[in-house]
């Protein structure tokens, strides 16, 4: 949790000044994209789409969309061709496995970085729901 605290403190500084107008008397949360931060940082591999193989792209209309349907993080768009939000894609590789056309491959993140530079921050401690500090 120390890392979490440091991250919070850093985020807080970046956002200065915070208003102190919190009126909560019980704990309530509101929706936020990137609740756990930029989960793209968790990736060690990234999905790369070859549009020449994608069934939807080939047909030029909505088709297949298995990648969209199975992405556990809702970061793929149901578009032609499908797009991936790399800020939050965790690099699980499910889209690669479910693609019937073999249109998506996984590239090691470091190779990709060497070629294109990294868009997000350096990878930090990988957050996960599996741990001791849970309810």
């Amino acid at each position: 949790m120390e890392a979490e605290r440091k991250k919070d403190a850093a985020a807080e500084e970046a956002r200065q000044p915070h208003t102190r107008a919190c009126e909560q008397e019980l704990a309530m949360s509101w929706p936020k994209v990137g609740e756990a931060g930029e989960t793209g940082d968790w990736r060690t591999v990234r999905p790369v789409l070859d549009t020449s193989k994608c069934l939807a792209a080939q047909r030029g209309k909505l088709a297949c969309m298995q990648c969209w349907m199975f992405c556990p993080d809702a970061v793929i768009t149901r578009t032609v061709p499908p797009g991936v939000n790399m800020t939050y894609c965790k690099g699980c590789g499910i889209c690669v496995e479910v693609c019937p056309a073999g249109a998506i491959t996984l590239e090691p993140e470091h190779e990709h970085e060497e070629e294109h530079g990294r868009d997000a921050h350096a990878a930090e401690e990988q957050g996960s729901a599996d741990g001791d500090d849970q309810p």
């Binding site: 919070d8 915070h18 208003t19 919190c22 909560q24």
Partner: peptide, 14 residues
């Protein structure tokens, strides 16, 4: 968590 945290609007919540 142990400390106050900011919400989506940057309000530091109790």
């Amino acid at each position: 968590l142990a400390d106050p945290r900011p919400n989506a609007d940057g309000v530091l919540c109790h």
